[in-house]
Design a protein around this nucleic acid. Structure first.
Length: 263
DNA sequence: AAACTGTACAACCGCAAGCGA
DNA sequence: CTCGCTTGCGGTTGTACAGTT
């Protein structure tokens, strides 16, 4: 599924898929010393990779809190909603989904959600058309009886005000900032006379899950990457087993540091 | 069974923002 | 102000695997 590993002649660096050994090295190094400088890090960690590659691998795959696969309906809906609002701001979207990375969300969007988003757009267009047609027919019927025999919509088609208040499309397009708001019944969806079967599952899922969905999801803080050691550069002369040790990152006080440095 | 097509996703690349000298 | 460096972001590619013909 990924590019096969190969050595780039020009740079002499390894590219392509990461081996478990490389993963282990990088993970162990970052967990121990933090990522003080991605460009320099591979040298110290004993990896023949560029810093950029290491950073990406760590961020998207090796970080302890990274969730993999199995997107929940809530997550899908959040992504869809935020993408509708923000566009391709994957990093911002990722910041709202603990454990998900921008790269993963981007991939998920392109493979799973793009189609759904397109369907949503199409439904919104149909909704607009229905609304304009409904309001037009309502006006034309103002001074007539309540017969719907002339209407092009099914017999169980609800009056236009009904559509406005409870159609699923209204939910989608009007609750942009509050998706915990009211839900629409399946009957309401059917009553518009449009075949919503394509996405009914997800709509129902949205209704169910967002009811349980507290504000905690948005306010819950990220688990910080506390392995980061700001403003610290190791001395290349300090070796620690298979790594070149930058020390300091695991020292909570000066005496520990002095001990490790042999002072 | 083989060939073809579609899907999923890890990884690469180029660019831009941020920051310090 | 600008130059150089690092980091982060978003677009895109490559390829294994699954499904279909």
């Amino acid at each position: 599924m990924v590019k096969s590993p190969y050595y780039d002649e020009l740079s002499g660096l390894k590219k392509g898929a990461w081996s478990p050994e490389e993963d282990d090295k990088l993970k162990a190094y970052v967990q121990r010393y933090g990522h003080w400088n991605w460009r320099e890090l591979p040298k110290f960690a004993g990896l023949s990779r560029c810093g950029k590659s290491c950073r990406l691998r760590w961020m998207n795959y090796l970080q302890p809190d990274v969730k993999r696969g199995n997107y929940t309906k809530e997550e899908d809906e959040v992504i869809l909603k935020l993408h509708e609002e923000l566009g391709n701001k994957w990093s911002i979207i990722a910041s709202k989904l603990p454990g998900r990375t921008d790269n993963e969300i981007k991939n998920h969007w392109h493979t799973h959600l793009k189609k759904r988003a397109k369907q949503n757009v199409r439904k919104a267009e149909v909704k607009d058309r229905l609304l304009s047609e409904a309001s037009h027919s309502e006006k034309s019927q103002i001074n007539t009886d309540h017969s719907e025999s002339e209407s092009h919509v099914p017999a169980d088609y609800a009056p236009s005000h009904h559509i406005l208040e409870s159609s699923v499309l209204s939910q989608e397009t009007e609750c942009s900032s509050d998706f915990t708001s009211s839900t629409s019944s399946p009957h309401d969806q059917i009553s518009t006379g449009v075949n919503w079967a394509v996405d009914q599952d997800s709509q129902l899922g949205l209704s169910e899950t967002f009811d349980q969905f507290s504000g905690d999801f948005w306010t819950e803080p990220f688990v910080a990457d506390n392995t980061f050691v700001p403003n610290y550069r190791p001395s290349p002369s300090l070796f620690d087993g298979e790594f070149i040790s930058p020390y300091a990152s695991y020292h909570n006080n000066v005496s520990d540091l002095c001990w490790d440095l042999g002072f």
